[in-house]
């Protein structure tokens, strides 16, 4: 049922899994060796926000009006309720409604 098994393909997959694990574990590994200074800690504090902003800005710029409208709804719901799940559900719902009605005005 697995089709033809290719050892070469599996070897390439192992290579991919090794380099991926090195990236996943490497950042923590490096910082766990040396006690980071206060300014390095400030920088680390700012990392998650910066990474999310980078992912989001590129995604939203690729999206159209419906993505932006749904995005605004997500921010409002997340701010009011502090619930990621609720914000996600309402946001995806908004996107589908705007898209469904969108053909006439977008």
């Amino acid at each position: 049922m697995f089709g033809e098994v290719s050892l070469t393909a599996l070897a390439v997959v192992s290579g991919m899994s090794i380099v991926t694990y090195v990236t996943k574990a490497g950042g923590f590994w490096a910082l766990d060796r040396v006690e980071p200074s206060e300014s390095v800690r400030d920088g680390l504090d700012a990392l998650p926000g910066g990474i999310l902003v980078a992912i989001l800005v590129v995604r939203l710029l690729e999206g159209g009006l419906s993505e932006w409208m749904a995005g605004i709804v997500v921010v409002v719901v997340a701010h009011r309720t502090e619930s990621v799940l609720l914000a996600m559900v309402v946001g995806v719902g908004t996107l589908l409604i705007v898209r469904g009605s969108g053909a006439s005005f977008v």
Partner: peptide
């Protein structure tokens, strides 16, 4: 294939680093 995998995943270095305060 392996080289692109490495480059695309370099962002995980930063993500892993940001977990340090707790994971340590």
């Amino acid at each position: 294939v392996v080289g692109t995998t490495l480059v695309v995943n370099l962002r995980y270095l930063l993500m892993g680093a940001s977990l340090r305060p707790w994971f340590t």
